[in-house]
Simulated assay, not measured.
Amino acid sequence: MRKGIIFVAAAILSACTGEVDDLPLTETDATPAGIIGGTIDEGDPAVAMLQITHGDSSTICTASVIAPKVLLTAAHCVQPDMVEGATVRAFFGTDSRSEEETWVNVAETHFHPEYDHEATHAGHDIAVAILEEPVAIQPLPYNRAPMTEDRVGEPVRLIGFGDDHEIFGWSGVKLHVSTIVSTVTPLLLGLGDADHHTCQGDSGGPALMDVNGVPTIVGVTSFGNASPPSICTDGWHTRVDLYLDFIDPFVNAP
């Protein structure tokens, strides 16, 4: 049975106040992964910001349109203690502080049944958010071919709305950076180098590689190590190719 939580987003949308993702650290000081070494991304309309609001406090993650009403994101962004009783909405645009951009409420969230928030390194950090209404944005394709170690060294692009170390915690501005695949494991992708990777607020965002000439989601930003805790040093991403059985039913739903 698919595990998850379903809720109806509030009709009245609150202001975007934001704060640092406050999920617990693991024993290895892993923290939810903002773009380090990147630049403002005025393209990629299918990449959205997720805002999870409890009262006057908000947290952000990143997500990708993979069907008109379906966003792909990270499980730790929508686990029960994050979304229960919250207003969740998605922002489509470059700068979430702009009043001219588009916000759409989220109606449901579902996370992978094997995800364990106390064992992020064990993988399965993948989820979907179902929008209240479809968006007229071309969905991003997601990878269906096995990722193998021979992809190490190949180019990849990371996108997110998170911390760039100039605005610690989150920026609310879409950033991107081009880097390389550094590691492929049976569960995860290590992407980037010391100066080009993800950080807080980018959780759930896409890692894009060209597949037959088409930018395709190969990974979902999951976590990064921080040393000291305020400085992100690397980024790890959930392999999308391992979770087609979880993703496809939502994409193919009528």
Rank of each mutant, 00 (worst) to 15 (best):
H237A: 00
T62M: 08
A48F: 02
L158Y: 00
P186Q: 07
A107Q: 14
N105L: 07
C77K: 01
V135M: 07
A10D: 12
I40C: 04
H110E: 08
L208H: 04
T109H: 05
L71T: 07
R2M: 13
E114P: 03
A48V: 15
V181T: 02
I126K: 03
T102E: 07
V152E: 13
S182P: 06
T87R: 11
H124E: 15
P139H: 06
F250T: 12
A74E: 08
L175R: 13
E42I: 09
V104I: 13
I126P: 08
I137F: 06
D163M: 03
N252Y: 07
L131F: 04
A10L: 12
P254D: 14
R157C: 03
D234G: 03
H54D: 13
T39I: 05
E27R: 08
N105V: 11
V47R: 02
S98P: 03
M82A: 10
I6H: 14
K69E: 15
Y142D: 00
G192L: 00
V70R: 09
G205E: 06
G43S: 14
D41Q: 15
A63I: 05
E19K: 14
L13D: 04
E19F: 10
G219H: 09
T26R: 07
G4T: 03
E19T: 08
M1K: 04
L187D: 14
V65D: 02
T185L: 09
D150A: 13
M209R: 02
L72Y: 04
G235H: 00
I231Q: 13
S203H: 06
I40K: 10
V135C: 14
A9Y: 04
R157L: 03
W236G: 01
Q79K: 14
D150R: 08
L71A: 15
P24L: 10
E133N: 05
A119P: 06
K174L: 07
V156G: 03
K3C: 11
Y142R: 00
G219Y: 05
A75V: 10
D163S: 15
C232G: 11
E101D: 05
H112V: 06
D21P: 11
M49P: 00
A75I: 12
D150Q: 05
A119R: 10
V70N: 09
L13F: 15
T87Y: 15
H112A: 11
H176D: 11
T120V: 11
A15Y: 12
I40S: 12
G169L: 07
A75D: 15
F92R: 02
I167R: 09
A107M: 04
I167P: 03
W236R: 10
T221A: 10
V83M: 08
L50T: 09
H76T: 06
R151C: 01
G123N: 14
C61K: 01
D95Y: 02
Y243S: 01
D81Y: 14
C232L: 12
V135N: 12
P206Q: 14
Q138C: 05
E132G: 14
V83Q: 03
E108Q: 12
I130S: 07
L25C: 09
A9S: 15
H121P: 08
T39M: 13
I180G: 01
V211E: 13
H121C: 04
W170N: 13
F161Q: 04
S57D: 09
H124M: 11
F246Y: 06
V8G: 14
N225C: 02
T183C: 03
P254V: 09
G123K: 05
L191D: 01
A30F: 07
R89E: 04
T183I: 05
D56L: 10
I12H: 13
L25S: 15
